[in-house]
Design a binder for these strands. Structure first.
Lengths: 192, 192, 192, 192
DNA sequence: AATGAATGAGCATTCATTCAT
DNA sequence: GATGAATGAATGCTCATTCAT
């Protein structure tokens, strides 16, 4: 793929992110996306096999970015508390930045097994990253605790997405609260 | 509505629960449901305004049951630990019993604002019930903690729904772990 | 199927015969046919599974009529010469009456194995009917002669279909010539 | 056109013959042909105006070869019987050699008037060649007899094309039978 | 009340053809 | 001359909903 093609590939993904995120998978027409990208309808099919695959590609790019940055944050944090804090902040800020594109998360195609598979893979990788942080601190059953931590964060994201006036300050407070709650909760499990 | 009508109303809901739960909203045809219920296609429209409304009614009935039982459990439990335990057990068992109907939760109609509204209402009532439990123990910011607790449980439900061999024993263990984690986590916030 | 339904079924076939015969399979839109029949597009699909199946049904009805009348003609004819004459007349008149619907024969769907199969079946039944006539006269290799006879007729039909001014008198003359040629040709094979 | 160009022109025709013959006009994509010919898609359009024209060119080349050889055979045959025999053999062998490319004959483009015109021209030239043979023998109405003869052969070709196990010996037998049938049939019309 | 035949809006995708390089 | 990326017209079919019976 040439440079120009890579650029077009990206610009289609950008347009698709925009439109899928605002209108949801089913209410988005291919022509909505291609018009937004300034290309002809058929051109999309030179880069993506189908509407489903395009949605999957948008999701994949977004998640890969999420996971890359997550790992970067964890790597450059010091100690358990700092790492958990970075995770929480990353999780909540990710959704904060996507407030205007909520339909990416709630209005995905319903019965695409490949997409389901892919999503599951991402969730697993997210969980694994958090589990590793906990393992380093010598916790037992780190799987369970990783899931619980992510679960808390994921519930809190709802307020961010659906309360129009959620501020960055409120977000920051949530981060602190969550870390505190979790750290106290696991205190006795830590091997020190 | 006469008794016979009420019965038919219920039997349509039963059929819809079954089919929506197995095939998801979009892959379910009205005729699938009416055939399952043993009635004519048009008859459904005498009882429900639309496919969306039927789905909403199925969801509503299920959630109302959930909340009714939740409140019953809380009312008949003693003390914070017991109440939290009952909540966790109820939440996880609810999904355990619906393992065969996962598409009710993941393949809902995408763009029905009324349904979104309704779901939001149920989540709020669920949260409120847990918040009350926490408030009774004199916690500050009980909203946050209620959400965190529910978030943990909701993440754990995924394993129940998608791990085919999840047992009731494993479920029970999750309940204990979650309660323990949470209670330790909030220990210092408790006013006693 | 009720009487009214049977009538609608027939009227769709009539419309399809008309439009397919004039424009050919590929240049006919479903809406052309349903408009011609005075019904909605979806209604066609209550009676026929697909465009291909509708075309097959049109063809089937036409061929069944052809074969029914053929057998009737043969049954009510006396002796070999008369029977061959009736066959020739029937074959050529059939196409004469369908001069305005030539595309039924030349612009059929190209890759429908079921249709190919069906057509093959009809040709076989036609051949079998002629073969029987020859067998009664004690000919050897009646298969070959039946095919040769039908072949002559089928080539002659082309003039009928594509020469605009072909008259019934010319047709009648062709019948006589063909019978004469064929009878002389097989004279020595006859067992008398 | 240079030599190299002529070669490419031919190689496109070869590829088109191959692919059209195997998959039929509608199921063949231009890219199928150009890939088979080892050239880029656009290049085809430097040599042929359209897909239809390419198909017509393939057909034309094939028919011209057919007619050239036919005339050669007729010219080098002696007497009516020999000439008719050569015609029959040529006709049936032509299809025998194209058993693997039947779709050239049955899955042609449906609504190309120019192609129809061309095909008609070839049929006429074929007919004329046979008619001349008959005329030399002083027959009356040679047109009719030429068509009848070709008709017989054309019906017999079907068996060759669609019966997988048709042998050259069976073909030879058909030739003999056809000539015999026809010669006896026209015996009395011959002026000698 | 119950039926089920009829309706018709809605949309992803293909592929022959073009034309800038 | 050769390329191949871009174009965009064109259409069969589904299925929620209606309404005459």
């Amino acid at each position: 793929m040439s440079g120009a093609q890579r650029e077009k590939h990206e610009s289609i993904l950008d347009a698709a992110f925009e439109v899928f995120g605002k209108k949801g998978f089913y209410d988005t027409k291919i022509s909505d996306i291609t018009e937004h990208a300034g290309i002809a309808k058929g051109t999309m099919y030179l880069y993506f096999k189908s509407k489903e695959e395009l949605f999957a590609a948008v999701t994949r790019r977004d998640w890969e970015t999420f996971l890359r940055e997550l790992n970067y944050q964890i790597k450059h944090a010091d100690g358990l508390r700092d790492k958990l804090q970075k995770v929480a902040k990353h999780h909540l800020e990710y959704y904060y930045e996507r407030k205007a594109h909520t339909k990416l998360f709630f209005h995905a195609p319903n019965n695409d097994p490949e997409l389901m598979q892919m999503m599951h893979g991402f969730l697993t990788r997210y969980m694994a990253a958090v589990r590793e942080v906990l393992e380093e601190s010598g916790m037992s059953d780190p799987d369970f605790y990783a899931k619980a931590y992510i679960g808390m964060l994921d519930r809190l994201k709802m307020d961010i997405l659906f309360e129009g006036d959620f501020t960055r300050e409120a977000l920051e407070k949530r981060v602190q609260q969550t870390v505190r709650l979790f750290l106290q909760g696991i205190e006795k499990e830590l091997s020190e």
